[in-house]
């Protein structure tokens, strides 16, 4: 491996650890700090005057800087509490979404097999769960589960809206267990 690649790998490892320590921050803010630190390291290397920098130069510059853990400490408890709140809200939203999808699937099945009323009721319930998932997903947007809940809830609600506006061309049987049987009369043969 060439020296410049070793140098870049050492710098990247340090910055990756800093990025992990800054997990409590917004992704944009985290990127800004990591980007500024990368420039800072290269400025430090340029100040040492050795071009191209050796691995030893990088070690010296990095050892003069804060350890990645220091960035976690700077975030304070407030940042971690906020991140934990987003995580919880996002995950609850995701469970609401799963519930909504499950109820929609069940209502499709029951609507086809048992009665139309079950289908209508189930879809209404899944829409309510979808709206809850959307709200919670937006509130917990910073968590990946929250993001997934919000995006999937929008798709689910859009599907429900489309199915409401444009009914499915396949007609479901409306007959329930109590419906009368259809009697088909055939003309009797007289034999005349």
């Amino acid at each position: 491996m060439s020296n410049s690649r070793k140098v870049e790998r050492r710098i990247n490892r340090y910055l990756k650890n800093v990025g992990r320590a800054l997990e409590h921050l917004e992704p944009g803010e985290r990127r800004e700090i990591v980007g500024a630190l990368r420039t800072h390291i290269h400025e430090g290397l340029a100040q040492r005057g050795s071009t191209p920098p050796s691995l030893e130069d990088v070690r010296t510059v990095l050892s003069s800087m804060d350890v990645p853990q220091a960035y976690r400490d700077e975030g304070g408890k407030r940042g971690f509490a906020r991140a934990a709140r987003h995580r919880t809200i996002g995950r609850v939203g995701f469970f609401f979404l799963l519930g909504g999808i499950g109820v929609a699937a069940l209502s499709l099945l029951l609507g086809a097999l048992v009665a139309d009323a079950l289908f209508q009721g189930g879809i209404m319930l899944s829409v309510v769960l979808g709206v809850c998932a959307l709200g919670l997903g937006i509130a917990g947007w910073r968590d990946p589960y929250g993001k997934a809940a919000a995006i999937c809830a929008v798709l689910m609600l859009a599907c429900a809206l489309v199915s409401e506006v444009m009914p499915l061309p396949v007609s479901r049987t409306a007959t329930g267990p109590g419906d009368p049987e259809v009697v088909i009369e055939t003309p009797a043969e007289t034999g005349e």
Binding site: E32, A36, H40, H42, A46, E74
Partner: peptide, 27 residues
């Protein structure tokens, strides 16, 4: 660095500082 850069990033997010890129030799 661990105190200055988070503050600069926050000030940028809040719109109190603006940032521009300037070419740097070898970095």
């Amino acid at each position: 660095e661990s105190t200055v850069y988070p503050i600069l990033a926050r000030l940028k997010t809040e719109g109190f500082v603006a940032v521009r890129n300037e070419p740097s030799p070898g970095g």
